[in-house]
Design a protein around this nucleic acid. Structure first.
Length: 528
RNA sequence: GGGGCGGUAGCUCAGCUGGUUAGAGCAGCGGACUCAUAAUCCGUCGGUCCCGGGUUCAAGUCCCGGCCGCCCUACCA
């Protein structure tokens, strides 16, 4: 409602991952929220990007015979930026952790913490697998068998691991446990949804230990400013993107105008954002984020979709057939944002057909076709006498337009994107019912009911306009076409979504191709 | 082991602080209509609310005990 900064972020992609619909889901949710706020008069800013440091990337780069930076460049250009295009993300910025603005200012942040006494030298102790060339967590280790009985062995190599010690720098995170708990208590919205908040709180209540934030066993990362033999632990590095992209360290004015941000993250990385990240900011004397929202998993066949298993689905598999709008609509509508949601091709095609094609798309087609056929394309207007006074039925439509606009706006404020869409769809259904009931095709046959025909079509067109605006953050392509066909003024993306129902109609309509054509046969990509 | 969440019509899900014959959408079935993408509209079929106890005048909704599934239990980028 009120104009202000709305800075929203997605996690940054780990470049070595393969893009799947889970990544795209997060992006779409953040994009919908950003577009909605942008169209509500806020200074909305959507940030996404890539996380490019760490040992794994170094290793795969070497295996591919290129430098890690070249490897990251390749993946950014061939995988991640294309993903954003595939699902039509209108991000305002794209940060890479190899950007100079990130590396330089992340170092400033680290130096600041060091100067303020939040960092100390300690010793990291961990199990190291020579085969993997990396430290393993105990969860990655299994009991040895045969010659190694009684020893811990690497689950991958089945060979004993060594207990190694390494000098590390530690962040005194333990000092912030009380302040974090106070934050969760005083600001229940800081971590959402509720289940996520509970988990974070119970985690912190068990006590926090300090965080090892540097590594010296490899060098692909940001150099620790006071000791260049160490690089910054990748998570510490990655989290800082949210402020380095907003001007931290180099543009105080910009930073002050954007920060704090709303972070949209998958629930797997909730803790990094809801515990470590605010602790880092507290240490640096920077305001904590506005909110951290952990969304659920996409379940495929009842299981968590996995990059390593074969259940990963590339977004383009869906968009090639259904288009980016349908992708966006489906995941935003079918899944309660914050909860796990099941994906199936059957559900996707069923919703596409009934809700997008038969519901919204057909509504647009029939209204525009009638204005073209019965009124020669001229939208009937009350002021010109081509439409008469409103009846109770007409006013009921107008009232619904206002009601769903307000309801959707309220839902978006709580990040309940699915509920916002459900509200808007009440208007879709009501308009279809209204048209069937008013029978404009009957009115058109009788010259005496000419004015009534005008009122009905006028009302229907305005309803469609309201829908175009309300749905533009979710299905920008289709609504853009509709807006044009309705003769709407200016760019649809500039229309105020929180006042969508106030649109009074254009002058003439123009022909409109089916927005969501029927898809006769769904070819489900075959895979394991 | 400890903690959290969930198990409601064929499918996906709503059901707030316990209260009339448990709801929606989709699918199915019947009818109406023709402006529209064989679409829309109306009607209709359909549920031991996981199981067993308990509290209560009253429980899907609270308590206890089971069964099943998922998640968290720190450095997986």
């Amino acid at each position: 409602m009120s104009a202000g900064s709305f800075y929203i972020t997605t996690p940054i992609f780990y470049v070595n991952d393969v893009p799947h619909i889970g990544h795209a889901y997060t992006e779409v949710a953040a994009d919908v929220l950003a577009r909605w706020h942008r169209q509500s008069g806020d200074d909305a800013w959507l940030l996404t990007g890539t996380d490019e440091h760490g040992q794994k990337i170094l290793r795969t780069a070497i295996a591919n015979g290129v430098t890690p930076k070249e490897w990251a460049d390749r993946l950014v250009e061939t995988a991640w930026k294309p993903l954003l295009e595939t699902v039509n993300i209108a991000n305002d910025d794209f940060i890479r952790t190899t950007d100079e603005r990130h590396e330089v200012n992340a170092q400033k942040f680290l130096q600041h913490l060091h100067d303020e006494g939040h960092i100390y030298t300690g010793e990291y102790e961990g199990y190291y697998c020579v085969g993997c060339e990396e430290y393993k967590q105990t969860s990655d280790l299994v009991d040895g068998t045969g010659a190694y009985t009684g020893q811990l062995v690497c689950a991958i190599h089945s060979k004993p691991v060594e207990l190694l010690h390494e000098k590390n720098y530690f962040f005194k995170m333990s000092a912030f446990a009380e302040r974090l708990l106070a934050l969760y208590e005083e600001n229940p919205n800081f971590v959402q949804p509720e289940a996520a908040r509970n988990e974070v709180m119970s985690f912190v209540k068990r006590g926090l230990s300090d965080l090892s934030i540097s590594r010296s066993s490899f060098d692909w990362g940001i150099k620790v400013p006071w000791d260049e033999s160490h690089v910054v632990y990748v998570w510490f590095d990655a989290l800082l993107n949210y402020i380095t992209a907003a001007g931290y360290g180099q543009n105080d004015e910009e930073f002050a105008s954007r920060w704090p941000a709303t972070h949209i993250v998958g629930k797997d990385i909730l803790r990094f954002h809801a515990v470590i990240w605010p602790a880092m900011l507290m240490a640096a004397g920077i305001e904590v984020p506005k909110q951290v929202f952990g969304h659920g998993w996409l379940l495929v066949g009842g299981e968590k979709m996995s990059k390593s298993k074969l259940t990963g689905i590339a977004p383009s598999q869906i968009t090639d057939t259904f288009g980016s709008d349908a992708f966006r609509y489906y995941f935003m509508r079918a899944i309660s944002f914050g909860q796990d949601g099941s994906f199936s091709w059957e559900d996707l095609s069923a919703r596409y057909q009934s809700e997008l094609a038969n519901g919204f798309g057909n509504l647009a087609s029939r209204v525009i076709a009638m204005v073209l056929r019965y009124c020669d394309g001229t939208i009937p207007a009350l002021s010109e006498g081509t439409a008469g006074d409103f009846t109770a039925d007409d006013l009921a439509i107008r009232a619904t337009e206002q009601r769903v606009t307000d309801a959707a706006t309220a839902f978006i404020d709580t990040l309940a994107i699915h509920d916002a869409l459900a509200s808007v769809w009440q208007l879709v259904d009501e308009l279809n019912g209204y048209i069937t009931l008013q029978e404009p095709w009957v009115l058109a046959k009788n010259p005496e009911s000419r004015e009534r025909l005008g009122t009905v079509l006028h009302t229907a067109v305005r309803g469609l306009g309201t829908l175009a605006v309300l749905l533009s953050p979710v299905i920008p392509v289709a609504t853009g076409k509709l807006w044009t066909a309705l003769g709407g003024d200016g760019d649809l993306a500039d229309q105020r979504v929180d006042r969508a129902w106030e649109w009074t109609g254009g002058a003439k309509v123009s022909a409109l191709e089916p927005l969501f054509p029927r898809i006769e046969s769904i070819v489900e990509p075959a895979d394991g």
